[in-house]
Amino acid sequence: MRTILTETVHTFRKLFAIICGFLKKIWRIIKHTLRRLKSRVPRFWGIHARPGFRLNLILAILPFALLIIVYLSASGYRLAQNPDDKLLPSISKMVNAVNKYAFTPDDKTGTYIMLDDTLASLSRIGIGIILSAVTGLVIGLNIGIYRGFRSLSLTFVNFIAIIPPLAILPILFISFGTGELGKIMLIFIGTFPMITRDVYLTVKKIPEEMITKSLTLGASQLEIPWRIIFPQVLPKLIDSIRLSLGAAWVYLIASEAIASQNGLGYRIFLVRRYLAMDVIIPYVVWITLIGFLVDLSLIYLVRGAFRWYSRE
């Protein structure tokens, strides 16, 4: 009896010691891993995080993948309830629509509708933005350099900048017609004041010393704007164009929606009548893609052509 008791106690003690040792070991491993994690640069969490190239790529793709998954499941669910649902069309329906609009010649005109729309829209936004870039550059430089011209026009430009361009759209259509000119003018009026102000502020930031310096090196009154100021403003101008393009798209789509025979915005608002989401969604994705690619190429242009600017 006694021996059994002592033996049991003994066994329990042994067991207890083993369990304790085991727990200690686990604890040590946890501590060790924690310490190791702490001594490493975090990859995702916190302000010290430095995701590597691969993780960076994965993280960048992740939200897109999530969006697609959410869309597919929602669309699948709705279509299962009602196969004629138009709100969230299936991928295959959208592929069909793209096929029809982008890769099949139109019955009436024999041209490709999406290509026509894209070219029409791009030429409008392109001409509009180039017009306002040139105007903004010229006026901005002059306001920045010549105090007299600044007194004359800075307040005026600031005033124009506040006019909501869409509010004067009717005026523009009445005075310039509902053709190309009216749309280009809307984009122009909507974007040039901001570009002008950006250029002006960049010029103003060039220190007085630099102007004096170029005079002491023999620059003439005309060489200073042309050789010293213009090259320093140019990359900033491209940055400013990038920012203005967002607004330019708004004005483009709005004017095309109201009065047009072609264009990406026109098409979207046309097919809206038939609730043709299978056309609208690809068109929106296409517009976004164009905008994204234009933005990206402008970024690379600035980086490549103005090495001094991006790292200054």
């Binding site: 004096t212 310096k213 002491t216 090196l217 023999g218 010293i228 320093q232």
Partner: peptide
């Protein structure tokens, strides 16, 4: 007003940020 008779070196802003070393020197 400033002219090439009087050259200047400031503590900052003497160099043009958009020009390389060589171009800065030969600008004059």
């Amino acid at each position: 007003f400033a002219n090439p008779d009087r050259g200047v070196v400031y503590q900052q802003y003497s160099l043009f940020p958009h020009l390389t070393v060589l171009d800065n020197i030969v600008l004059g």
